[in-house]
């Protein structure tokens, strides 16, 4: 079976299965509303009054990450509970292609939460959504989506190794929002934390998005951030590939996917 067909089939099945889950419906439909209200009220009377940059983008990214985190990462757990993890792992179709299809499916569906955040923001707060540099915003949005996908594949591989997936995926939700600067710039954090932040591709891509929303012009700093974003994406993609090879080898030697 061609890799493309595997990816597409996995993607279609994933979208159907994911949307059928009520918890996902919360992440997709309700969570954007809650995040929007919380951020809009916290930012009310603040000197940082760029509504699009801090409320729409912040709440949108929080919801998007929630959807991706609890679906892509949680899928491993669901496959394990359904006793299908070992089957998809040893099937002639590549496990990497199946997982990639799942992540793309989740991401496509989860993008709806970003759109919904913009709608909620406009309906509830009547604030216009202003993007100063639309072409660069679209480029940085694309980079952000890719960075989320690459990172969630990396996390999904790590979670293959653990039976405590539910706890682990809960443990990465808020910390990533905090460290990657989803709702405030990472410069607010202590210096040592900023070094950790810079290791994640999302930190750079979100910085790009915020810059393109707030500034009509593109400076050297923008391209430096873009280089770091692409660089970290490549590093995570390579790490994921390496991790898969190590896991596949270990699974075949120990004949078990229950490694924790």
């Amino acid at each position: 079976m061609k890799v493309r067909s595997v990816v597409i089939s996995s993607l279609v099945v994933q979208i159907k299965q994911t949307y059928a889950r009520n918890m996902y419906k919360f992440c997709l439909l309700v969570s954007p509303l809650m995040s929007t209200i919380l951020l809009a009220e916290m930012y009310r009377n603040s000197e940082h009054d760029n509504f699009t940059s801090y409320i729409v983008l912040g709440a949108g990214l929080m919801s998007l990450w929630g959807c991706i985190c609890f679906s892509s990462a949680g899928d491993i757990n669901r496959e394990r509970y359904s006793n299908t993890l070992s089957l998809i792992f040893i099937s002639p179709s590549s496990f990497q292609a199946i997982l990639f299809g799942k992540v793309i499916g989740n991401t496509i569906l989860s993008l709806f939460s970003v759109l919904l955040t913009a709608v909620y923001s406009f309906v509830l707060y009547r604030q216009p959504i202003v993007i100063e540099n639309m072409p660069m915003f679209l480029v940085s949005f694309l980079i952000t989506i890719i960075s989320f996908m690459v990172f969630s594949i990396f996390v999904a591989y790590i979670l293959v190794l653990s039976r405590r997936t539910e706890i682990l995926m809960n443990c990465i939700d808020v910390p990533l929002i905090l460290v990657c600067g989803f709702v405030f710039p990472i410069e607010v954090l202590p210096m040592w934390t900023q070094y950790i932040s810079k290791a994640f591709p999302m930190t750079w891509s979100i910085k790009l998005m915020r810059q393109s929303i707030m500034s009509p012009s593109v400076d050297g700093d923008f391209f430096i951030s873009m280089t770091y974003a692409i660089g970290t994406i490549i590093v995570y993609a390579l790490l994921s590939n390496l991790l898969y090879k190590l896991i596949a080898k270990r699974v075949r030697i120990e004949a078990s996917l229950e490694m924790a």
Partner: peptide, 12 residues
């Protein structure tokens, strides 16, 4: 910590 840092950023 997340909510406190957010409060710090929003209120100054």
């Amino acid at each position: 910590i997340f909510y406190c840092v957010l409060a710090f950023f929003t209120t100054g």
